[in-house]
């Protein structure tokens, strides 16, 4: 996020397009009538002189007091620091694991970035291992760096995911699954079935349950839910539950 100190005169700083669909070229704010205020622009926005214009299609989001960004659903992931993602080990190097995160480049996972990691106890991952990770560095033109620990160095759930099934969807679906309050598809499924789920912000979702039927049902229900409204999601899950009983 780049900070743009602005010094112009007027009162309102909120855009009328907040939570609306915007496309590239839309001007969301005119800086010439905004008071002395700092705006923070997130992905998909840029400053053209006195105008804040949109660079990609999506929904404009606003967070108090001054953050704007465009949220869209993509099949490709642009890494961002502190995102939790699902990655696949592609190659093992002496210092790093190379991990595929659906991004523009492969990400590095340093072999020491594990809880209590030292040179002596480097974990061994087969190629194709699925990992739950955290993005630590995401600079442009550099391979992103990942970690299997939280900020305080504890494992706290990060690491390899055993068994289960992983499917790829879009970043929009992942964000929906992680939103709060819990999205209806997960809530409704969770009431009837017991399963484990790990959602990566890069559009990968891992599901595990004791019976493969449950895994397949949950995975397909989630994949179908992407384009449905909240009410439709509840109806879909209800129908599914009736069918399996």
């Amino acid at each position: 996020m780049g900070e743009k100190p602005l010094s112009s005169s007027s009162s309102s700083s909120s855009s009328s397009l907040v939570d609306q669909i915007v496309v590239a070229g839309d001007v969301i704010l005119d800086l010439s009538n905004i008071t002395n205020q700092t705006l923070k622009l997130g992905p998909g926005l840029r400053q053209d002189g006195d105008a804040i214009s949109v660079m990609k299609a999506g929904r404009l989001r606003f967070s108090k007091p001054n953050k704007y960004w465009v949220e869209s659903s993509e099949k490709r992931y642009v890494p961002c620091v502190e995102d939790t993602i699902l990655g696949i080990v592609v190659d093992c190097k002496p210092d790093n694991f190379l991990v595929d995160i659906k991004g523009p480049m492969l990400a590095f996972l340093p072999v020491l970035a594990f809880e209590g990691g030292t040179r002596r106890n480097i974990p061994k991952f087969e190629i194709g291992t699925l990992l739950y990770l955290r993005v630590v560095k995401a600079n442009s033109n550099m391979n992103p760096e990942l970690s299997c620990t939280d900020a305080s160095g504890k494992a706290s759930g990060f690491g390899p995911l055993k068994d289960g099934y992983m499917f790829e969807s879009t970043t929009g679906l992942s964000r929906m699954l992680l939103s709060s309050p819990t999205c209806p598809v997960l809530e409704a499924l969770g009431k009837k079935l017991s399963f484990e789920i790990a959602v990566g912000l890069n559009g990968r979702v891992w599901v595990n349950a004791s019976a493969p039927e449950t895994v397949i049902l949950v995975a397909n229900a989630i994949m179908n839910a992407e384009t449905l409204s909240w009410a439709q999601q509840r109806i879909m899950v209800d129908k599914l539950m009736k069918r399996i009983q």
Binding site: E126, G128, G164, M166
Partner: peptide, 20 residues
Amino acid sequence: RMTINEKKFIEQALVSDLRV
């Protein structure tokens, strides 16, 4: 790329006539 998890799951589920 396919994860080991997916490979194992697809094969296991097929044993009981289920497809992903």
